[in-house]
Design a protein around this nucleic acid. Structure first.
Lengths: 212, 212
DNA sequence: GTCGGCCTCCATCGAAAGATAGAACCCGCG
DNA sequence: CGCGGGTTCTATCTTTCGATGGAGGCCGAC
């Protein structure tokens, strides 16, 4: 196409991973690593400065903002760079929030270097690359539509996941115990389970509630 | 000190991480990366070939043997190389088995490159380097002996975390429901909680059970 | 060998939790 | 306006859990 290289920002809290990405990508023609960030906040700041084409972003940072929120902030601006998620955790419940936040692609760190470089070029062109396991997850999500919880149901289930009793949940949310049971009954029906611990387990797997 | 370099084996299933470790360590004087392995089995095999001083080993591999078992196999041989665990995760459930298996050190991937190189040299000398969070955990473990779960208790709690009832857990482990209750009662006492969901929550926080 | 920790099992009792079947309110949408 | 979805509440009944207080066998440590 053109002679101008694709300008990259590497955002990962692991120096080793940044070095690895740099080593892998710098040998590729047409790719240029112009910045690194060790925190999500830093990544958002540098991405806003304007001379970046693609941000390679980890999903988990040791402290502070997570990758999904960073993705949302980066892509919110007009003329924003593309965000390519590069992370270790495929079964992570955070995949869907990241994609919803506007990530252009989602790769795992066990991807071969060629795939990585190809994904960067695809992302720069505005098209999507998904790791196979992530693509599977998306398909499953589309096939099982009933699995969205309302705001209140999510609140209730989150407190249940913290180990509170129905009564304690009711106190916390200013509800009667009976109301909590009603919400839980509907949650069980939606998730196709029949106990609170099972509901917590499957909701965690589906990424409906957060726990970390 | 001496002229012979420290010979390293890098074992990690992520090509990017191997490239990063290589980039970080190869610039250090006296360190020489002589081999890489993408699986734990491969790491064991290459470590047995004899010309390795220190193995940098990840704890989690996509498939097959885990890092803890690999550590045990590598260190079982006479004249074995030192094993330095370099991983992303630092939960209780993963660190202790690896250390018990004979790892000489335990670092997190967010360590600065200088620390990494220093740890490699320390390991080559047979001394131990632990990441601060891991060291903290070990100290806490020694100070509060009550917070360790036995193998059986961990099994039971893991199944409970998957949403199984006491009866279902009993069926799975070939126990009576009463026995499951006994185990759970002791777990509750150890974790200072009073319900299954609370036990799952705090055990997850403490890293006593895994969920991913 | 004795001791202690782990694992297994037992029985009973009260307290939670879950199933079921309604009912009423608010609010956005067609 | 009527309808549906979300939220709240009620009531009864059954099942499951958790608390309590044992008891015996196994095995490694002292």
């Amino acid at each position: 196409m053109t002679d101008t290289p694709i300008r990259l920002l590497l955002a990962d809290d692991h120096p080793v991973v940044r070095a690895g990405l740099r080593a892998v990508l710098e040998t590729e023609p047409g790719l240029l690593v112009v910045a690194e960030a060790a925190t999500a906040e830093d990544a958002v700041t540098r991405a806003a400065e304007g001379d970046i084409d693609v941000v390679l972003l980890d999903l988990r940072f040791g402290k502070g903002m997570g990758g999904a929120e960073a993705t949302a902030r980066i892509t919110a601006r007009p003329g924003a760079p593309r965000v390519l998620i590069v992370t270790t955790y495929d079964s992570d419940a955070a995949t869907l929030p990241a994609i919803e936040a506007g990530a252009t692609g989602y790769l795992l760190k066990d991807a071969p270097p060629e795939d990585l470089a190809a994904a960067v070029r695809t992302a720069a062109a505005g098209r999507t690359t998904l790791a196979p396991t992530v693509a599977d997850r998306l398909m499953n999500r589309l096939r099982t539509p009933g699995s969205t919880l309302t705001r209140r149901e999510t609140e209730v289930l989150t407190l249940v996941a913290d180990g509170l009793s129905n009564q304690a949940v009711g106190d916390r949310l200013h509800l009667t115990e009976g109301t909590v049971k009603s919400h839980l009954a509907r949650i069980y029906a939606k998730l196709d389970v029949d106990s609170r611990t099972a509901a917590v387990a499957t909701a965690t797997d589906l990424g409906l509630i957060r726990r970390w």
